[in-house]
Amino acid sequence: MLAPATGLLAVFIFVPMLLTLWLSLQSWSTQTGFDTARFIGVQNFIDIFSNSSIGRDFKAALVNTLIYTVLSVVLILPLSVAFGLLVHQKLAPGGIVLRTILFSTYMVPMIAVALVFSKLYSPTEGPINQVLGWIGIPAQTWLSAPQTALGSIVLLNVWQQVGYFTVLAVAGLTQIPDSLYEAARIDGANPVQRFWSITLPLLGNTLLFSAVIAIINSVQVFEPVALITQGGPVNATNVLTYHIRRVGIERAQGGLGSAMAVTLMLVLIVSITALFAFARAREARRA
């Protein structure tokens, strides 16, 4: 019963994974057979961290991916909690409608989102700059300047994803028993104190899960870069996924591409492990 799923796992994930590890130690062109691969030890890793153009491009892409991921998570998590509270509150109507509207963007394919935002962001004719103009904010360069391009892609990612994480936050909020708030209120805690001492700690597991998903999603960003910026302007949005595909498949430098992929995976494993260790330490402190 396990065979079909594990068979697919072996052929399409484990074999490529092992090949990536093996190829990261080889000099090999993607256009030729594996028999042409030549063992060169950790030379690929030395190259991608060197000061040559290969190394500079890779390190810039790594940093771009890190910035993109950190900014996305730092924006998405607090917003999802804030929006979650807005949906969950019972003071005013409209919560459920808001949840539905926020979530609808998650259903729109990233390709369409990227295309629409590439036009929304247009510095001269785009509506975002028009609206900013009405309230007296000067026109921004958005995707057209290296300083703002990566941040603009983060914003469109947040716009698309935040609804999904809001749904998760609302699910977490409904798990918190009302009796706790009741008790805190009797003890004289104001809403702000109640948020910090009840809501946030009890949302811990939800936030941990959200953070892991948000990191894994952000690290894989590809569509908006491939579609609108092609890594530019001046490599400002050249993230690792785009760079790996460009080096490994388009430039056919399979060994170098694999070494980059292995590095990306190591960074991801270390970050996720650190996140869980942090969550566990916090848990232990509270117990």
Binding site: P16, L19, V219, R245, I249, G254, G257
Partner: peptide, 19 residues
Amino acid sequence: IFSTFLVSLPVIIVPLFIV
């Protein structure tokens, strides 16, 4: 199976393409 959460498509795209 669980560990594959950490293996994203971009990481294995080159060998997967070859396979």
